[in-house]
């Protein structure tokens, strides 16, 4: 929340938001689905997009903001090009997920929940991704990287552009 985000051009925002609303038939009951699709367009939920969604659906901005802040899957700040989700579930935990996370944090130089200065990485922790046999693991742009050791982390990060 700390980083200042520049205001976007409303015309450009509407060009991306309108087709999404069209697809969902301007149904405010589909708000979560609409926000998911809007986030897919921008990689996050820009302030202008939320205002546009509220206006076009004819619902209160406070409701859109409430939903957008409720779900962890939504981000109100820009996210990095690569999403790193380190699993902190029980199985990964006992196999040293804490050390894996620490290595990611020191390697990239950010804390969990933050995005790196160059917008390359967003580092997050998740409860359990249901792939306990692979633990400890990281979900890297929706791909599972399992059986991690601290030594494997640097090569993984170097592989990314």
């Amino acid at each position: 929340m700390s980083k200042q985000v520049e205001a976007l051009d409303m015309q450009e925002v509407l060009a991306k938001v309108n087709p999404v609303l069209e697809k969902h038939g301007y149904d405010d009951g589909m708000l979560v689905g609409i926000l998911q699709d809007v986030q897919a367009q921008f990689n996050y939920l820009p302030r202008e997009a939320l205002i546009a969604v509220a206006q076009r659906l004819g619902i209160a901005l406070s409701r859109v903001f409430s939903v957008a802040t409720f779900f962890k899957a939504f981000s109100l700040t820009p996210r990095g090009r690569h999403q790193l989700q380190v699993c902190m579930g029980t199985a990964c935990h006992v196999r040293g997920a804490a050390r894996i996370l620490e290595k990611f944090e020191t390697q990239i130089g950010i804390k969990a929940g933050q995005t790196s200065e160059d917008m390359k990485y967003t580092l997050e922790t998740v409860g359990c991704v249901g792939a306990c046999a692979l633990g400890p693991l990281v979900v890297l742009d929706n791909e599972f990287e399992g059986h991690l050791t601290v030594d494997k982390i640097e090569p993984i990060l170097e592989r990314l552009d």
């Binding site: 209160a60 406070s62 903001f65 409430s66 802040t69 409720f70």
Partner: peptide, 10 residues
């Protein structure tokens, strides 16, 4: 009828 405030986060 203004809905100016809401509960946010969780």
């Amino acid at each position: 009828g203004r809905k100016a405030i809401s509960l946010v986060n969780r």
